[in-house]
Amino acid sequence: MSNAHAAPASHGFDELDPHGAGKHTKHSHHIVSGVTLVGVLGILLVFTALTVGLAQGEKWVMSYFAIELPRWVNVAVAMSIATIKATLVLMYFMLLRYSNPINTIVFLVCLVAFALFLFFTGLDINNRGNIDPIKANQIQAGGIGGIKAGWSKDAAVIDKASVVYWRERKLNEVGPEKFAKMKAAFSHGHAEHAHADTGPTASAAKVKSGTTPGLFDAAAPAAHDEHGGHAEDHAAPAAKPAAGH
C-alpha cells in the first residue's frame, strides 16, 4: 500500500507531487472585505451590550419576582454569548473561515484537550466524599492563619482566618460605628450587588455555601442564632484542624 502512489496515472501525473498534495493547498492570502470587518465589530459590540444587559436583567427578574434563579443560568447565558463572540472573532478576525482547515483542526483539538481537562478535574474534585465521607473536603473555613500581616519581617503572624483578623483589627482601630459606615459605603460603591443592600448582616439572611457560620460574630452578634439552621455542612469541618497541619 505504501507503493500505491507509484502507479503512474495517465491524467497529468506529477512525479514531484504524486498525491496531488500541492494542487488543493489553500493558501491563506484571503483579503476580507472592509464591510465584513466593520460588521463583525458591530455585532461584537452589540453582543457585549447584550451580555451586560442580560446579567442586569437576571438580577431584575430575581428581585422583581422574588425568585432565586439557579446559579447555572448566569454562567450558561454569559458563556453562550461569549462563545458566539469568540466564534466570530475566530472566523472573521482570525480568518479561520478562509484559511487552511488544518488551523481550525488545531484549534478544535486544543479545545477538546481543554474540555477533557475541565471535565475530569471537575469529576474528581467536585465529587469527593460521595461514597466515603472521609474523602470529603476537610477545610478550615478561611484558613488557620500562619501567614503574616504585611510585608515586613516583624509583621504580626495571623493566627486565624485572615478575613476575621483584618476585620477585628479595623474594628479596634475605627470603632463599630465608623466601621459600619465604611462597610456600607464600600459595599454600595457598586450598588448592583443584590446582597450588599441588606447591610452588614446580609450573610446571615441566606444559606451560603462557602461562609462559615459564627465567623462574623464580632460584627453581627445578633445574627448568630439565625445561622443554626444551615450550619451542618460547614460547622463540622471548621471545628477540625485543616489537613496536613
Partner: peptide
C-alpha cells in the same frame, strides 16, 4: 481612602469588610 484597599490576593489580603472567609 481609608479601608478601601487591601483587596489583594492570598496572604496580602487585608480588606476589613469582607463577608466571606474565602474571599482572598
Amino acid at each position: 481612602i481609608d479601608g478601601y484597599g487591601g483587596k489583594a490576593p492570598g496572604q496580602f489580603f487585608s480588606y476589613a469588610f469582607s463577608d466571606n472567609p474565602f474571599e482572598p
